[in-house]
């Protein structure tokens, strides 16, 4: 039942951004970096850029696509120029934002449309629109995924939608000098999009990073445990870079029925490898499973976290051994009884 070494390598990792979103468009205008942005996306970005330094580095032009006849995939591109010599801030990233206006055709059927906005062949905004029947009416549901707001869903009946999009774009999506903005529309089923308009796209540089480190290793179905068991599971945290990693937090999550604590929960600095132990007090009988995560606000490459579940299996608690021994004994006893009864009946039959 015990599993082998659980290992996870993530080059740089991820994202714990708590973003306060402003509810008023007026507030957005107070931030110089957001001046001139359409109100909806301005409101979305306000909370982000007010929490960090932000600077508008340029604007991509408006883009629109009219779709006359049904087509499975349509796209339009337009070049734009950003100031030469701009560089991604370090630490920090680019932010791109725009309002996307979508009009469904009056005679549109049911189906799904996927609208993508990106630059330099890297998509950073994707809107899914579903038109479905519901209680005799047509319902339109649309959603976006990004690292600013996460997964956001809207629902309504209107044929005209305004969707604010904002995201940390892929690295190559913003370049010094010439760039190419692209809008694509893909229709699945009988849905018909009549027109899509993208407002001027704001390109911002910010001190926020989309991928502060968060690496996770999971142990699932490690073994059967009983209430009262005390188990030690070794782990290793390894920084493969020569530069130290600062402010590392070590947390155990998803531990059901367990009280699991790493020996250390905060490291000022991590260079090379560090071995540690997670002490687990079992509160409720069941299958042992948990996740170990290491987090830091510094973006970094080449960090590895390792849980050696074999070591935990090699030394089950005395109570576990007793339970397994009893279980096996009862099973063998039952099987022998059945066989013995069978043989007796065979003899009697003769």
């Amino acid at each position: 039942m015990l599993r082998g070494t659980v290992q996870l390598v993530l080059s740089s990792a991820a994202v714990v951004l708590t973003l306060a979103l402003s509810s008023t468009a007026a507030a957005a205008d107070d931030t110089p970096a957001l001046a001139g942005l359409p109100p909806r996306v301005g409101a979305v970005l306000h909370g982000v850029v007010s929490a960090a330094t932000a600077r508008k580095v340029g604007t991509a032009p408006r883009l629109s696509l009219s779709i006359g006849a049904r087509s499975q995939l349509l796209s339009v591109s337009r070049p734009f120029v950003l100031p030469s010599g701009i560089r991604r801030p370090r630490p920090g990233w680019w932010l791109t934002a725009a309002d996307v206006r979508i009009r469904l055709a009056p005679n549109s059927g049911f189906g799904e449309a996927v609208i993508g906005v990106g630059s330099n062949s890297r998509t950073w905004a994707q809107i899914e629109i579903f038109k479905r029947p519901s209680s005799g009416r047509a319902v339109v549901e649309w959603n976006t995924v990004d690292i600013v707001r996460g997964y956001t869903v809207w629902r309504g009946h209107a044929a005209n939608l305004v969707v604010p999009v904002a995201n940390f774009p892929p690295l190559q999506a913003v370049r010094s000098g010439r760039n190419v903005l692209r809008l694509s529309v893909q229709e699945l089923g009988q849905i018909q999009v009549a027109r899509v308009k993208v407002s001027p796209v704001a390109v911002l540089s910010t001190s926020l990073v989309p991928d502060p480190l968060k690496i996770t290793a999971s142990v699932h179905a490690l073994g059967l445990v009983h209430a009262g068991d005390v188990i030690s599971v070794p782990y290793t945290l390894r920084n493969r870079n020569p530069t130290p990693l600062h402010g590392v937090r070590i947390v155990v999550t998803n531990a059901r029925g367990l009280e699991a604590r790493p020996d250390v929960t905060h490291l000022e600095s991590l260079t090379g490898s560090r071995r540690g132990v997670i002490r687990i007090h079992v509160k409720r009988a069941g299958t042992l499973g948990f996740d170990l995560a290491a987090k830091t606000d510094t973006a970094s490459d080449g960090v590895r976290v390792n849980i050696d579940s074999r070591a935990a299996l090699a030394a089950p608690s005395g109570r576990n051994r007793l339970v397994w021994g009893l279980g096996t004994g009862v099973a063998v006893f039952l099987v022998c009884n059945v066989l013995w009864l069978g043989l007796r009946r065979i003899r009697r039959g003769r």
Binding site: A13, A14, V15, V16, L17, L19, V145, D146, I147, R149, G150, Y151, T152, V153, D211, K214, T216, S218, T253, N254, D291
Partner: peptide, 16 residues
């Protein structure tokens, strides 16, 4: 899988 992108809605998959 574990996707760290959808963090705000609570319906994401940031912890496997």
């Amino acid at each position: 899988m574990d996707d760290e992108a959808p963090i705000a809605s609570g319906s994401g998959c940031s912890n496997w």
